[in-house]
């Protein structure tokens, strides 16, 4: 197992009022993403625990790209990874953001 953590500055606070969202499942080639609104508005963090070791550079690129596109200010993402491909990771991060953007019922 390998753990990675990336912290970025974000342009703006992610919209919505939900405090938490979760998407995905930990299985081979898949991952779960837990998003929590716990950080200051201009920060975001992605913590990763992965079964596939040695892919730090790929994770770094995927996360940087995600932050650039989504500007998920105030969000902390925690990822349990079962060895997902980068496109799956990007998809799940985007899904997590979409979920937390919704307003709480």
């Amino acid at each position: 197992m390998e753990t990675l953590s990336y912290r970025h500055r974000a342009q703006q606070r992610m919209a919505g009022s939900k405090s938490m969202a979760i998407i995905g499942v930990v299985a081979s080639g898949n991952l779960e993403v837990l998003a929590e609104r716990v950080l200051p508005d201009t920060e975001c963090q992605v913590d990763i625990s992965t079964a596939a070791e040695g892919f730090g550079a790929v994770w770094e690129a995927v996360v940087a790209d995600f932050v650039e596109r989504s500007s998920p200010g105030g969000l902390k993402f925690s990822i349990n990874d079962g060895g997902a491909r980068p496109d799956t990771v990007a998809l799940r991060l985007a899904q997590a953001v979409r979920l937390i953007e919704e307003n709480d019922r």
Partner: peptide, 21 residues
């Protein structure tokens, strides 16, 4: 005890297996 509580299995890491929240 939702996923944000992170009450994961205390045993999977012995096997180097990923946890689910």
């Amino acid at each position: 005890i939702g996923p944000e509580q992170r009450e994961v299995s205390p045993h999977l890491r012995v096997f180097e297996l990923p946890e689910q929240f």
